[in-house]
Nucleic acid binder design. Structure first.
Length: 1075
RNA sequence: GGGCCGGUAGCUCAGUCGGUUAGAGCGCAGCUCUGAUAAAGCUGAGGUCGUAAGUUCGAAUCUUACUCGGCCCA
C-alpha cells in the first residue's frame, strides 16, 4: 500500500528526506560500483576555485553538469564523475596579499615564499566545505571524496610530463609577451586590475614624425620605383613615411611601420613641392590640410618591404643577418586616427609584438622595468614620461618632427599607486600552438557544441586567430615550470619526471633533499640544482605555469598520468563525452583542453559541450560583488527547494542565452509545474488508498477507455520526445515537453477522469483509470529523475519501491523508460485537441448568454473546419457532451451553420473599395440570399451579389441574435449551444445546484471525502419537488454520499447554512452519519 | 574598433520549410467551475514582432544597413 500523500507539501523537507535515503542506500556509489560491466560515460568536471562562496551561476553550471550523467546512468552507462578543485593562480595570491596587507612581489619575497605559499594553500581550500554542502544539497552527484586538486604533487607531475612532451617536440620556447606593467610596483597587472585604473582626459603628447625612406631599397619593389627611386637614389626630395604616436619614448624602440594592406595610401607633395610624404589617402586632408597634391597611390599591401631610416639607431642585425627597418602590413591598422601608418615597437605594444612575431623582428628594449630610458638616447636615465620631452626636442632638432601637439585620451594607471602603466614586453614561455592551428580548427568540427553557433562563431573565431599560448607567470603560487637553465652556458633543460631529475640533480647542493617527499612548489623545488653537460650549475627558471595550463591538463592529471602509455588513454577515459561551462570559458578551459589534446593526441578532448550563458539580475544587469546584486543560492533553496531551482534553471531559458534571474520566477516555476505534478500525484494516492488499488507489474494491456488510450498515447509520445531531446543534449526542451504533458495530465486527463475514480463500483473502467494514471506517474518519475531528482525519487519510492521489492531501490538506478510506439495514436491526439478546442468554444458560447455550465442544456452544434475533422470528433462526442453539460452533440455542415449566422458588409473594407458604388452594393446585398452568402464566405469562396463579387474579407459574419442557438465563430469553427430550457433540464439544473451547495458544506464542515452524511432541508415547493423526485433525489444522495435526505430541523450538532438558489431560499443541515 | 549572441504582450518565453487570424504562462479586470489542487476554465484589456530598406504573390521568419542590450577581444 502507498503512504498517504497530502496535497500540502514542503519541497525542502522532502529533499532532506531523500538526501538521507540516497546516503543510507549509497545510491550514488552504486551507480558506479554496480555498473562495472557497462560502457563508460565520461564527464570532465571543470574545476571551480574554492576561495569564495558559490553563487547562483555556479548552481546553473552544476545543474547542467548533473543532468546528463544522471540520464546516461539510467540509459545503461557507467557515468564517471570525478570532482576537482582549481587551486593555483593570481586571484589566490591577491587574496593572501590582502590578508597580509602587502601589494608587491618584493614584499612577498621579504615575507618568505614558503610562508606565502603555505597561506595560499590554506586560503584556496577555505570554502571547500561550503562548496561541498551546496553541491550535495542541489543534488549534483560528483565524487568529491576523490576530487583532483591542482596543487597535488601527482597533478603537478602530470603537468610536467606534458611540458616535457611538448619540449621534446620543440613546441615550448621562451619569447616576449607584452603585458600592462607598473614601473613603480615592478609587476604586471591582470586585465581586471587594468580595468580598475583607466583615467579619462589624460594629457599626452601627440606627435607626427617623419620616417625618411632609405636610400637603399629592394629592387623588386614596384612601389618605390613609381615614387622615383632607382639604384642611384631618389629622384626629387626624399619621401618620408608619416606616422603618429602618443608615446614618443617608444620611438627609441621603433622597428617597423605598419600599414593596412587593403587601404589606399598616397604619396603627396607639399604645396611648394619641397616635401614628399606617404600616408593613408583617407587621412591626407585631416592630417595635412589642403594644398597637398597626390603624386601616386598604392595599396597598403604594395608597400610591404619599403625600407626607411628609423629615428634612432637600435638594431642593425638580428639572428646573424643584417636587419633593416621596413613597412609591414597589419590588419589592425585603422583609418580613424593618426596617419594610417602605425609606428611599431615590438617591446611596447601587444599588437606590435604580434607583428614582430609574424615577421621575425627582434624585441629591442630601450627602457628598463622601472620605466627609465637606458642606452644612448635623448633623456637616458629619465622616466619615460619625462624623456618624452627630450625625445621630441631631439626629433625637432633633426627635422624629423612634422607636428607636435597634445591630446586628451583615456589611459590606464596602476590601481594601487597611480603610476601610468607601460605596455612592456617581458620574457615569457610559450607553447607553439600556431603550429597546430589547422588541426585545432579542423578537430573543432568534430565537437558537438550547444548552442551550435559557438563552434564556428566565438570558439572557431578564436582558433582561427590563434597565437602562441603564453603559459608562464612570474609568480609564486602555481605549478613550477620544470625547466632548468645553466648559469654558465645558458643551456635550458626540461625535466618531465622526478626520476630523471633525481639522476641529474647536483648531489652537493640537492643531496639532502628528499625529492619524493618534496613539496614541488616554490621555494622548495628551486633548491634543486642540476649539473649541466658543460659542468656548470643549472637553476630552475623562476616562472610558474599559468593556471589555465593546470586546467588544460586535467584530463590526464586527474588520473596522475605521466606517459602516453597510461591506461587512461585506452580505457575510455579520454576524451570526455560531455563537459559544460559558461561562455566565458571559450578562451579559458574550452581552449586549454582543446589545445593540449590536439597537440598531444591529435584529438578533441570532449565530444559534447553545453556552453551556458551568463546569469543576470532581475533588471538584466550582470551580477557582481561590487553591484551587490548577487543572488545567494541558499535563500532560494531554503525557500523553494533544490528541485524548484533546478527546474527553473533548466527550463526557463535556453541554456546558451544570458538569462535574468529572480526568486519570483523560481516561485512561479514551482506553482506552475512542481505543484501541478504533486497535486496529481497526491490525488492519485489519495483515491488509490480509498479503493485499495494495487498496481501490477504485469502489462495491463490496451486500455479500453478512449481517455486512457489517449493518456497512454501521449505518454509514449512524451518518452520519444524526451529521449530525443536528452540524446541531443537539450534538457531544456525535454523539461518543457514534460511540463506540457503534466499540464494536460492534470487539467484534462485527471479532471475528465474524476468521476471514474469517484464512482462507487470498483469495475474495469475504474481499474483502467487507476492503472493509466499510475503508469503516467511512474513513467514521469523516471523521465524527471535526471532533472528533478528529489521529487522523482519521492514518487518512485512510494509508487514503486514500497510495493515491489524486486525493483531497483532508487529511481536513479532504474532504467529510463522506453517508448511503446505501437501505443502512440496520432489521430486520437488530434481528435482530443479538437475536443479541447470545441469545448473551449462551447464554454465561450455559454459565457455569452450567461448560461452556467451547471445548468444542463439540450444540444450543442459543432461545425468543424473540415468534414474529416467531423469524423475525428464524433467518437469523442461523449467528452464534449460531458464537458459542456449538454444532452447531445451534433456535427453540422456549413449550410446548417449558416442558418444560425448573420452576415453584413464589413464597412471598413467595403467602404474604401467601392466608394461611390457602395449604395448600389448595399441595395444588392439587402436582397441577396444570406445563407448562400454565408456558406460561400465560410468556405472562403468569393460570392456574387448582383454585379459585385465579394471576398470573405468584405463580409462580417457573426452568430445571429434571433436564433435560439448561442454561437461562437473562430478560425473556421462554429460552436453553438441550444439555449432553450425544458422543465426537465431546469429540474436537473436545480439538482446540480443543490449538490454543489451540499458539497461545499461538506468541505466547510471539514468532513472526510468518504464520510457518509445525513442531510436536512427546509425550503419551498419547487426545490422540494427536486429533492423528493425519484431520479433527482437518488442523484443527490449518490453525489453527496448522503444516507438520508429529509425535510425537517437539523440535529443540534449539524452544520447548518441558509442559502439562496435561483432566488429561492433554503436551509440545509449536514452531519456525519453514524457508523 | 573587431567577433558572437539577443531584441516578439507589463514580465518570462514559444513561434518548425517564408504561408490562414503571431501564441503560452504569469500579472491585471470581470465572470464561471470545483470534494485532487496553493488549482482549472471563459472573456477582456495589453503587440509598429527594435528601426529602415530589399527579396517575394506573401516576411516575426530570408538579405543588408542601422539601433539598443549583453558577452568576449583589442
Amino acid at each position: 500500500m502507498f503512504q498517504p500523500v497530502s496535497s500540502k507539501v514542503s519541497f525542502p523537507e522532502l529533499e532532506d528526506r531523500n538526501l538521507k535515503l540516497w546516503k543510507e542506500r549509497e545510491v550514488f556509489r552504486r551507480t558506479w560500483d554496480d555498473a562495472a560491466d557497462k560502457p563508460l560515460f565520461m564527464l570532465y568536471e571543470g574545476p571551480p576555485t574554492a576561495n569564495g562562496t558559490p553563487g547562483i551561476h555556479h548552481v546553473l553550471a552544476r545543474v547542467f553538469k548533473d543532468v546528463i550523467p544522471r540520464y546516461k546512468t539510467m540509459q545503461g552507462f557507467r557515468a564517471f564523475r570525478k570532482g576537482g578543485w582549481d587551486t593555483h593562480g593570481l586571484p589566490v595570491e591577491i587574496e593572501v596579499e590582502k590578508q597580509l596587507g602587502i601589494t608587491t612581489k618584493q614584499e612577498i619575497e621579504e615575507y618568505g615564499i614558503d610562508k606565502f605559499n603555505a597561506l595560499c594553500r590554506e586560503s584556496v581550500m577555505r570554502y571547500v566545505k561550503e562548496w561541498e554542502e551546496l553541491t550535495e544539497r542541489i543534488g549534483f552527484w560528483i565524487d568529491m571524496d576523490n576530487a583532483y586538486i591542482t596543487f597535488d604533487n601527482g597533478y603537478i607531475q602530470s603537468g610536467w610530463w606534458i611540458i616535457k612532451e611538448l619540449w621534446d617536440r620543440k613546441l615550448v620556447y621562451q619569447g616576449f609577451k607584452v603585458t600592462p606593467h607598473c614601473p613603480r610596483c615592478v609587476t604586471s597587472l591582470s586585465s581586471h586590475e587594468v580595468s580598475l585604473g583607466y583615467q579619462e582626459d589624460t594629457e599626452d603628447p601627440s606627435v607626427f614624425v617623419r620616417f625618411p625612406m632609405s636610400a637603399e631599397q629592394d629592387k623588386a619593389l614596384d612601389a618605390v620605383k613609381s615614387m622615383g627611386w632607382s639604384d642611384s637614389g631618389w629622384d626629387g626630395p626624399t619621401p618620408s613615411v608619416l606616422a603618429w604616436t602618443t608615446t614618443p619614448w617608444t620611438l627609441t624602440a621603433n622597428l617597423a611601420l605598419a600599414v593596412a594592406p587593403k587601404e589606399e595610401y598616397a604619396l603627396v607633395a607639399s604645396p611648394d613641392g619641397a616635401e614628399r610624404l606617404l600616408l593613408a589617402k583617407p587621412r591626407v586632408e585631416e592630417v595635412l590640410g589642403e594644398g597637398w597634391t597626390v603624386q601616386a597611390t598604392f595599396k597598403g599591401s604594395e608597400l610591404q618591404g619599403l625600407r626607411y631610416e628609423p629615428p634612432f639607431v637600435n638594431a642593425t642585425e638580428h639572428e646573424g643577418q643584417p636587419f633593416h627597418h621596413r613597412v609591414l602590413p597589419a590588419d589592425y591598422v585603422g583609418m580613424d586616427d593618426g596617419t594610417g601608418v602605425v609606428h611599431t615597437a615590438p617591446a611596447y605594444g601587444a599588437e606590435d609584438q604580434e607583428l614582430g612575431k609574424t615577421f621575425n623582428l627582434p624585441t629591442v628594449h630601450t627602457v628598463d622595468l622601472q620605466g627609465h630610458v637606458t642606452g644612448d638616447y635623448p633623456g637616458t636615465g629619465k622616466f619615460v614620461k619625462e624623456a618624452d620631452v627630450d625625445i621630441s626636442a631631439d626629433l625637432t632638432k633633426r627635422g624629423l618632427m612634422f607636428r607636435q601637439e597634445a591630446i586628451l585620451h583615456t589611459y590606464p594607471f596602476c590601481w594601487r599607486c597611480g603610476t601610468p602603466l607601460l605596455y612592456y614586453a617581458k620574457p615569457s614561455w610559450y607553447i607553439r600552438t600556431t603550429e597546430y592551428k589547422d588541426e585545432m580548427v579542423a578537430l573543432n568540427g568534430d565537437i558537438n557544441w550547444h548552442p551550435e553557433h559557438i563552434q564556428q562563431g566565438r570558439f572557431g573565431e578564436w582558433l582561427r586567430n590563434n597565437v602562441d599560448w603564453a603559459i608562464s607567470r612570474e609568480r609564486y603560487w602555481g605549478t613550477p615550470l620544470p625547466i632548468w637553465r645553466c648559469d654558465t652556458c645558458d643551456e635550458d633543460e626540461c625535466f618531465g619526471d622526478l626520476d630523471t631529475l633525481r639522476e641529474r640533480a647536483d648531489a652537493a647542493t640537492t643531496g639532502a633533499l628528499d625529492l619524493d617527499g618534496l613539496d614541488l612548489h616554490r621555494p622548495y623545488i628551486d633548491e634543486v640544482t642540476v649539473i649541466c653537460k658543460c659542468g656548470g650549475t643549472m637553476h630552475r627558471v623562476p616562472e610558474v605555469l599559468d593556471c589555465w595550463f593546470d586546467s588544460g591538463v586535467m584530463p590526464y592529471a586527474q588520473f596522475n598520468a605521466t606517459s602516453s602509455d597510461d591506461p587512461m588513454f585506452t580505457g575510455g577515459q579520454f576524451p570526455a563525452d560531455y563537459i559544460c561551462e559558461a561562455v566565458d570559458q571559450t578562451r579559458g578551459w574550452f581552449y586549454s583542453l582543446h589545445a593540449l589534446a590536439v597537440l598531444l593526441r591529435n584529438k578533441p578532448s570532449y565530444k559534447n559541450v553545453i556552453c551556458l550563458g551568463l546569469i543576470l539580475d532581475d533588471r538584466g544587469e550582470k551580477m557582481s560583488k561590487t553591484k551587490g546584486n548577487i543572488v545567494e543560492p541558499w535563500s532560494v533553496i531554503n525557500a523553494h527547494g533544490a528541485d524548484a531551482l533546478r527546474w527553473y534553471l533548466l527550463t526557463a531559458a535556453p541554456p546558451g542565452n544570458a538569462r535574468r534571474f529572480s526568486q519570483d520566477l523560481v516561485e512561479e516555476s514551482v506553482r506552475k509545474f512542481l505543484l501541478t505534478l504533486w497535486n496529481t500525484y497526491s490525488f492519485f494516492v489519495t483515491y488509490a488508498l480509498l479503493d485499495g488499488f494495487e498496481p501490477t507489474s504485469a502489462d495491463p494491456g490496451e486500455p479500453v477507455a478512449e481517455l486512457d488510450r489517449w493518456g497512454i498515447s501521449e505518454l509514449n509520445q512524451l518518452i520519444v520526445d524526451v529521449t530525443a531531446e536528452m540524446e541531443g543534449y537539450n534538457p531544456t526542451d525535454a523539461g518543457r515537453k514534460i511540463e506540457a504533458f503534466v499540464g494536460e495530465l492534470s487539467t484534462w486527463y485527471v479532471r475528465r477522469s474524476r468521476r471514474r475514480f469517484w464512482k462507487s463500483e470498483n469495475d474495469g473502467d475504474k481499474r483502467s483509470a487507476y492503472q493509466t494514471l499510475y503508469t503516467c506517474l511512474v513513467t514521469l518519475s523516471k523521465l524527471l529523475a535526471p532533472l528533478t531528482p528529489f521529487i522523482a525519487e519521492e514518487m518512485y519510492q512510494n509508487l514503486v519501491v514500497a510495493s515491489d521489492p524486486s525493483v531497483p531501490d532508487s529511481v536513479h538506478l532504474a532504467v529510463f523508460p522506453k517508448a511503446d510506439t505501437a501505443r502512440i495514436d496520432k489521430e486520437l491526439g488530434e481528435a482530443t485537441q479538437l475536443v479541447m478546442k470545441v469545448v473551449s468554444m462551447g464554454r465561450a458560447a455559454r459565457q455569452k448568454v450567461q448560461a452556467k455550465v451547471r445548468q444542463p442544456l439540450a444540444e450543442v452544434l459543432v461545425m468543424p473546419k473540415t468534414a474529416a475533422e467531423g469524423a475525428l470528433l464524433l467518437p469523442l462526442a461523449d467528452q464534449v457532451r460531458d464537458e459542456l453539460n449538454v444532452k447531445q452533440v451534433q456535427v453540422i455542415s456549413d449550410a446548417e451553420a449558416a442558418k444560425n449566422l448573420a452576415v453584413r458588409l464589413n464597412g471598413s473594407v467595403v467602404g474604401p473599395k467601392y466608394t461611390d458604388r457602395l449604395p448600389s452594393l448595399q441595395k444588392a446585398f439587402g436582397t441577396a440570399d444570406k445563407e448562400a452568402v454565408i456558406k460561400a464566405a465560410l468556405t472562403g469562396q468569393p460570392v456574387t451579389v448582383g454585379e459585385f463579387t465579394l471576398d470573405a474579407e468584405d463580409l462580417d459574419i457573426s452568430p445571429s441574435s434571433d436564433s435560439p442557438f448561442a454561437g461562437v465563430l473562430d478560425g473556421g469553427y462554429y460552436v453553438a449551444i441550444d439555449t432553450r430550457m425544458t422543465p426537465e433540464l431546469k429540474q436537473e439544473g436545480l439538482a446540480r445546484e443543490l449538490v454543489h451547495n451540499i458539497q461545499n458544506m461538506r468541505r466547510t464542515a471539514d468532513f472526510d471525502i468518504a464520510d457518509r452524511i445525513v442531510v436536512w432541508y427546509q425550503c419551498d415547493a419547487a426545490l422540494q419537488e427536486v429533492l423528493t423526485s425519484d431520479a433527482m433525489g437518488e442523484y443527490i444522495r449518490t453525489e453527496t454520499l448522503a444516507v438520508r435526505v429529509e425535510e425537517g430541523t437539523p440535529d443540534a450538532d449539524a452544520h447548518v447554512e441558509t442559502l439562496k438558489i435561483e432566488g429561492m431560499e433554503l436551509t440545509i443541515g449536514v452531519k456525519r452519519a453514524q457508523g
